[in-house]
Design a binder for these strands. Sequence first.
DNA 1: TAAACATATGAACAAGTATTCATATGAGGG
DNA 2: CCCTCATATGAATACTTGTTCATATGTTTA
Lengths: 124, 124
Amino acid sequence: MNIEKENDCAAELCDVVQVHDDVVNALCEKMPNVETLDNIADLFKNFADLTRVKILYLLHEAELCVCDIAALLDMSQSAISHQLRVLKTARLVKNRRDGKTVFYSLSDDHIMTILTQGLEHVTE
Amino acid sequence: MNIEKENDCAAELCDVVQVHDDVVNALCEKMPNVETLDNIADLFKNFADLTRVKILYLLHEAELCVCDIAALLDMSQSAISHQLRVLKTARLVKNRRDGKTVFYSLSDDHIMTILTQGLEHVTE
DNA sequence: TAAACATATGAACAAGTATTCATATGAGGG
DNA sequence: CCCTCATATGAATACTTGTTCATATGTTTA
């Protein structure tokens, strides 16, 4: 019974076996596969940093360029650019160039749905 | 115009001012305060690790003791115990003692709502 | 084409974190 | 009581990550 091994469910539990076998079997089958769980963890990594949360909230309100975000958050242009690259790699934000300026915006609405769930949880 | 300073909105933007002042003012007012955003980031940190995501999914299916989780995830008892402490500190899981055994379970349903949002996002 | 501006990027450093190892605490059974 | 089992914890280590600094790329304008 070990979800690590392609859900083949063969790991041994405590000698005392707190959980009945049928329950544990059901457990393995209901679990998403490890790759999916890893993708979920990676997704949430993007929301696990204050700077990135601020950026996402700002972009929810308006399309912004790098230097505007840097000014609004009182941080260096480089720091913001690095973080925007993280968010872009995760496909949470997209950008478009207009002359010298690069405008960033949220990729889709689902991102804000997740953040709102978090907001609701922390505000009870 | 700087949300860092208690939303007093007084930071300077790019010289080129990509965003009009009224838009930026609206931005500052709509943003949750920094403390709230920090709490959101802290909340998501709990979901930003594969081991913890696995644990939460397991606990969604059944109340489990430490050694069962360790066996199911093929990890050391100590590693699991450390992670459960993280999740307990964040009030995402609760526990009860029954003799030698300590059973862990999810604190509330909202936790799974957030994870499900993440799952939906990664599975498109 | 040179200068100025906006952004991107690589290396380095500091801070945070997940696991291991050894050990401590706590509970039940003999 | 002592022994065993289940869990917790502290220190150490390896790994990850966010920011800074210096610099490169790309675009516009003089």
